[in-house]
Nucleic acid binder design. Structure first.
Lengths: 220, 220
DNA sequence: GGCTTTCGATACGGATCCGTTCCGTATCGA
DNA sequence: TCGATACGGAACGGATCCGTATCGAAAGCC
């Protein structure tokens, strides 16, 4: 529980009460235990504990659960971590589609408020650190969290290129990095808390208009 | 040894043969052991081993050194890691200062080729992941590697603002993130090898001119 | 009420690590 | 040559972890 409400990136831990077969006999698995375990992992990661320092014993302790209850659901830490990634909520913002510029601001503002908030940024740092040793973990995180937002951003950019609002002589992927990169740099390298308000709109306007002075400096 | 020559970010491990007092008696400490240990840590991190999975035993094994030899120099893993950070070489590129645009390209090109190469990016990912639990580690890395480059970038930007080549209505720190962020996003989120050639110049020109189409799209 | 499965808790053998200590050898200053 | 210190290697007691097993209690089906 605790801070989950403040950081909706990781809201829905999802119930996975094991193979809830209809003809199942005996005491059913506790859905509360499932979410308690996943929530415990997220809480530990949020506190900066790296995956290497995450032991199954510690997870069970933090979740207030017996170790056997964890092993009854997952064969090991890797499998558990994969399900933790799958539990993340990566819903994006609604775009009204009126202005390309406004949609870009909405996307980046959403990223600023949720995607790079305390827990989410800790998660990102932790997962990224294990890219080489556990590529499946990054793959799962990417599929669950990154992919959707990236596609949404590319859609807006392509719309702008069709509109004539965005130059068409560059790769959309590169353009996407121009918008996302600055937020990422701030969140990972400088700030550990929420990025300043207005930062998203600032970045969008500067990337659109360029940092050279001139008539264009007034954002359209 | 090994790949150090390919990635000059981590060239000079520096000799720290303990308190090499002049009146020191007995067999002197081996400078080779010093660099073997530090080099072993860097090699392990390069292979994706996170700090949590780095044990003193494993480090000594990898370095081909007795465990006591490690503990004779450092009281524990934290102190060793700090010296590993201090051993990094963060020399920047020479800037001819003719054009702000060219200096920016030089800085980002240097970052692409060295600062975000294989070993350096693995190091960055690992250190960033432990920001919360070991802030001193990040502080040391920042002082040794990041600060100098950041200052150099700010200098160029301020020169451009005085020149009239860069708009003056924004914080130089924010401007810096616009240039560095896209490379960072690529290196940390997408590519695990070297970034494509020409990427640095592309980013500089697009940030300078903006991504809107028009007469300015031709880089000056 | 029986049967089955899960629950938290505890304990297990085996493994790894920590930080220290000791070994026999190597390498320095005096 | 002698005393001092460092070397790689091995072992130590204590701690933590892994994955499994077992316990009595709880919670479902039939």
């Amino acid at each position: 529980m605790s801070r989950a409400a403040e950081d909706p990136e990781v809201a829905a831990a999802g119930t996975r009460p094991g193979p809830a077969a209809p003809g199942r006999r005996g005491r059913p698995r506790s859905a509360a235990a499932d979410s308690a375990i996943i929530e415990a992992v997220l809480r530990l990661i949020e506190d900066g504990v790296s995956i290497g320092d995450l032991s199954m014993e510690r997870i069970a302790r933090e979740a207030g659960v017996g170790k056997a209850t964890v092993y009854r659901r997952w064969p090991g830490k890797s499998a558990l971590m994969l399900d933790v990634m799958r539990s993340l909520d990566a819903q994006g913002p609604r775009l009204d589609g009126a202005s390309v510029r406004d949609d870009l601001v909405s996307l980046l503002e959403f990223l600023r408020r949720r995607g790079l908030a305390r827990r989410s940024s800790a998660l990102l740092r932790t997962v990224v650190a294990h890219v080489q040793t556990q590529p499946e973990l990054w793959a799962e995180y990417h599929d669950t969290v990154v992919r959707g937002r990236h596609e949404a951003l590319l859609d807006v950019l392509r719309r702008g290129m069709a509109n004539g609002e965005i130059r068409t002589d560059r790769d959309p992927e590169t353009l996407a990095d121009l918008f996302v990169g600055p937020l990422l740099a701030r969140a990972l390298l400088h700030e550990w808390k929420e990025l300043p308000e207005g930062f998203a709109a600032d970045v969008v306007d500067m990337v659109l208009e360029g940092v050279r002075p001139g008539p264009r400096a007034a954002a359209g």
